[in-house]
Amino acid sequence: MKVRTIKEGDTEVLVPVPEEGANFAPSAAPVFYNPAMEMNRDISIAATSVFLKGIEPDPEKVITYVDALSASGIRGLRLANEIGVHTTLNDWSEDACELIQQNIDRLDIGDKAVASHKNANVLLHEKHFNIVDLDPFGTPAPFLAAAARSVVNLLAVTATDTAPLCGAHLNSGIRKYAAIPFNNEYHSEMGVRILLGKIARELSLHDKTMRPLLSHATRHYVRTYLEIKKGAKRADQMLNDIGFIAHCPSCGHREAINGLAVPIEKNCSNCSEENMIAGPLWLGKLHDPEFCSDIIADLEERNCGTGQKAIKMLEFCRDELDIPMFYDQHLICKKLGLSASEIDRVIQELRDNGFLASRTHFSGTSFKTDAKITDIEKIISNIR
């Protein structure tokens, strides 16, 4: 296996070199390393650092982190090297484990990092870890049950199968996440909420609850950081944030309905056309604003290649309203036969008319608001 030296953050490691002439793909090298996910990893370093500061130290217990699907190991190596958390870097590939061990030796972090060669589900069923990180190529669904059992304090999950999550591959999404998504203008947020709904149901089997600290959809993947607590009553309360979205494809009206077994009107309350139903999915908060601010502050002090880009995205996450789902201004303007205005102007007009409104990290042409579609259309039509 050919390798080369790269540096991310303050960590210099060996990564595999794809075969000459091969397109960049997991099959192009014996061990997968994706440079396009650097921002994901930069945010992970900062988010983990911030979270660890909130855990009360216990001299008799070591805080443990597992990168259950490590591949090249770049994420876990950076965490061990830059933060100092005790890290288990696991992968089913012998080549991956050999490269991970080589990098552990090069970085001289053997006291903080351990290479593990196991099936991820086996490892997660064998041990409990304070922090569990799932970053698979594709869907995390086959690993969520074991992760829900293993995790103690923080669960971080990446999903790169956005087509099933967002409804483009409908049947695949139904099989993997036991939910029906929409492939419409807010499909990116739909993917985040479908994933969170699946994770919440898995955690509830172990009397665990989650509090989303940060959840975002960026390019080809979804990523979430969830604070975990134990308790049956807490799990019961968490399930109150599971529900459905009733969406009218005719007029664009949408309603969030909380509950797993609730009556849902067949017809739209706005125009009486037939609703489409998505779910079950997560209807609760996606972010904790204070946590987002703390990550931003950490990134500002950290040596990260994507720091400024990550900070900009996190600012949108921090400031966006916790309302499912967002509206796309261009789609509304197309229906009305109007040219789109600046998004900030639309948001200000909504606020001036007494509604809550904000931008959203999901799309630069979209916004969140508590206004109904009829009010939104009227306000946009009156903008000059």
Results as ranks from 00 to 15, higher is better:
residue 200 A to H: 05
residue 162 T to G: 08
residue 283 L to A: 14
residue 350 L to Y: 00
residue 20 E to F: 04
residue 107 L to N: 02
residue 20 E to L: 03
residue 167 G to N: 05
residue 363 S to P: 13
residue 310 A to T: 03
residue 291 F to V: 11
residue 298 D to V: 15
residue 322 D to M: 14
residue 120 A to E: 02
residue 299 L to E: 11
residue 26 P to N: 09
residue 115 A to H: 00
residue 358 S to F: 00
residue 76 G to D: 07
residue 101 Q to W: 07
residue 296 I to T: 15
residue 72 S to T: 03
residue 156 A to T: 03
residue 213 L to Q: 05
residue 115 A to C: 07
residue 195 L to V: 07
residue 87 T to Y: 06
residue 9 G to R: 05
residue 345 R to Q: 06
residue 282 W to T: 02
residue 347 I to F: 00
residue 226 L to A: 08
residue 356 L to H: 12
residue 236 D to M: 07
residue 130 N to H: 04
residue 278 A to P: 12
residue 313 M to C: 09
residue 25 A to S: 14
residue 324 P to W: 06
residue 262 V to G: 13
residue 307 G to T: 03
residue 115 A to F: 04
residue 129 F to R: 00
residue 212 P to V: 04
residue 344 D to W: 03
residue 220 H to N: 15
residue 93 S to D: 14
residue 369 T to F: 04
residue 163 A to L: 00
residue 321 L to D: 04
residue 357 A to M: 00
residue 229 K to E: 11
residue 336 L to F: 11
residue 371 A to S: 12
residue 314 L to K: 09
residue 92 W to L: 11
residue 381 S to P: 11
residue 24 F to C: 05
residue 253 H to I: 01
residue 171 N to I: 14
residue 317 C to S: 10
residue 5 T to V: 14
residue 239 L to E: 05
residue 268 C to E: 05
residue 17 V to N: 06
residue 312 K to Q: 15
residue 342 E to G: 08
residue 236 D to C: 09
residue 185 E to D: 15
residue 325 M to T: 05
residue 61 K to C: 04
residue 270 N to R: 02
residue 332 I to N: 00
residue 23 N to S: 04
residue 128 H to Y: 11
residue 327 Y to W: 07
residue 103 N to W: 01
residue 197 G to N: 01
residue 174 I to H: 10
residue 262 V to Q: 13
residue 49 S to W: 06
residue 97 C to G: 10
residue 288 D to M: 13
residue 12 E to Y: 04
residue 318 R to H: 14
residue 342 E to I: 02
residue 181 P to Q: 12
residue 274 E to M: 14
residue 379 I to T: 06
residue 197 G to R: 03
residue 60 E to Q: 15
residue 161 D to A: 01
residue 319 D to R: 10
residue 9 G to E: 01
residue 119 N to C: 01
residue 259 G to P: 12
residue 288 D to F: 09
residue 105 D to F: 08
residue 110 G to T: 13
residue 100 I to S: 06
residue 154 L to N: 00
residue 86 H to G: 06
residue 93 S to Q: 14
residue 356 L to S: 14
residue 221 Y to A: 02
residue 81 N to G: 03
residue 125 H to V: 06
residue 105 D to N: 15
residue 310 A to W: 02
residue 30 P to V: 11
residue 7 K to V: 08
residue 10 D to Y: 08
residue 331 L to K: 12
residue 313 M to W: 11
residue 60 E to F: 12
residue 91 D to L: 01
residue 10 D to A: 13
residue 164 P to G: 00
residue 352 D to N: 10
residue 273 E to N: 15
residue 217 A to G: 05
residue 333 C to K: 06
residue 37 M to N: 03
residue 153 N to T: 04
residue 248 C to W: 07
residue 339 S to K: 14
residue 175 R to Y: 11
residue 342 E to K: 03
residue 47 A to S: 10
residue 63 I to W: 02
residue 37 M to A: 01
residue 308 Q to N: 15
residue 118 K to T: 09
residue 111 D to T: 08
residue 125 H to K: 13
